[in-house]
Design a protein around this nucleic acid. Structure first.
Lengths: 250, 250
DNA sequence: CACCTCGCACGAACAGTGTTCGTCAGACGA
DNA sequence: TCGTCTGACGAACACTGTTCGTGCGAGGTG
């Protein structure tokens, strides 16, 4: 079992990806004479990969192939794949803007932040899995957290509920995007598992109504939720639990 | 993947696991003459594995080794590893009891269900990852959903908010347990990444207070939350957004 | 009783994964 | 000119999920 691959006939996927990457370079005229690997180049290659093929295609080998090198070369700039994941979600967090706090519009400001983060996650399908795994330790995530906290505090929310609500909002955004990416990924591939709304409703209709009375009675409500209605509903409910009170009150 | 290998000289982990499983059998006296592989045996072996070593140790090969066979033998009873995961979380959902709806105690009843589900998840560290991935399609999960829906409906909550709140609660419980298992897993191993509260608070203290004023001003609130305080807070906030109204009202 | 099918168990292998080891080339200081 | 040292990298290791082909034992049929 020493070396398969006398490299003539069949080529593995990495080599193919490397070839793909090769033809994007101007074929050795003036560019492509050097390839200084940096974290920036690693991250942008990783982002392209995730954007076009999803998070499960984000592989050290694929990233290395996109950079026309071997996987070992990445470990000089990135400790782990986990660290690469954290770098990516940090960069994502750095892209969402934080507003200057306006006590009149604190709910909308919170929602704006969450929506922007959600859209950033959804742009890179499945990357929210990394967001769930990576604790929000990075400075960029902390910047978001700081922004939300000041919005809530200047609105008069007590510190403890504010902190917990921010944590819950972060968690919910990640989980929501993770589920959404699963759903979207399933509907594109031939893979079953997650099914779309119509199939789900039909499946609900087959339930025995004596053991699932409430479910079959409200199939519409259970399967409804256009676009991000569910997202808005949940976050509004979460924020609605916070008592605004007078600014700076305890 | 870091191979630490305490056992034996140079035996692979599967062989070692098979040996472990071998000594639990009465050494060929009367038992161990047959081994009819069933889904039940696969699931219980999988549960033992996850309970003692965590979800990332749940491997087709490990399960097969615990059953003293090869990995290919499992695929006669289980289509995928994904299907095995779904079977496990279905079984977990089947264990949590649903109450008879009491309009006076609807909040507590909802919390009881979520708490029971949470404890079941936390008993098997990391299994909530599978719960996040698997859409709640199984009949057992649907039984939970049905239970919650009837609790909310008999309390007078409108169908649409009820359905969305149930969805959000499911999602939050899974995400909360996933994060908790990450935290617990990190504190046991030498692995860094997630750090405990003291280390986190110390790290917060090092932040520049001009760019992170609110954060450094409320380190305590940001890092507090004993036991499941955060869990209770979030779910209460989520449920508090539902207007009970008179039973059956619109 | 012989035969024949059929489903379950399983060994071996394949493709792909993260990660490490040892080497090698080139730049940089003495 | 001669080390030294660091980044790039080929090869390998220990895994993972999954499939293919084989064999074996049980059950039905002539």
């Amino acid at each position: 079992m020493a070396n398969r691959r006398a490299p003539g006939r069949d080529e593995t996927r990495d080599e193919w990806a490397a070839k793909i990457a090769a033809l994007s370079e101007p074929s050795g005229t003036e560019r492509a004479e050097k390839a200084p690997i940096t974290v920036g180049r690693i991250m942008s290659a990783a982002f392209e990969l995730v954007e076009s093929e999803g998070f499960e295609a984000l592989t050290m080998r694929r990233v290395a192939a996109a950079l026309r090198t071997g996987p070992a070369s990445l470990y000089a700039h990135v400790r782990n794949k986990a660290e690469l994941d954290e770098l990516l979600i940090s960069d994502l967090c750095a892209r969402v803007p934080v507003p200057v706090p306006d006590p009149e519009r604190w709910t909308e400001q919170m929602l704006d932040i969450c929506r922007a983060l959600r859209d950033e996650y959804l742009r890179y399908p499945g990357i929210s899995r990394a967001a769930l795994a990576a604790a929000p330790n990075s400075l960029d995530a902390l910047r978001l957290s700081e922004g939300m906290l000041t919005v809530l505090l200047t609105a008069g929310v007590a510190p403890q509920p504010a902190a917990w609500a921010i944590d819950a909002a972060f968690l919910y955004v990640s989980a929501y995007c993770f589920e959404a990416s699963l759903r979207h990924h399933a509907e594109s591939g031939v893979d079953q598992r997650v099914l779309d709304r119509d199939a789900l409703a039909e499946r609900y209709r087959m339930l025995p109504s004596d053991t699932f009375p409430s479910t079959v009675a409200h199939i519409y409500e259970l399967t409804s939720g256009e676009e991000h209605e569910r997202f808005e509903f949940t976050l509004r409910a979460l924020l609605g639990g916070l008592t605004p009170g007078p600014p700076r009150a305890s």
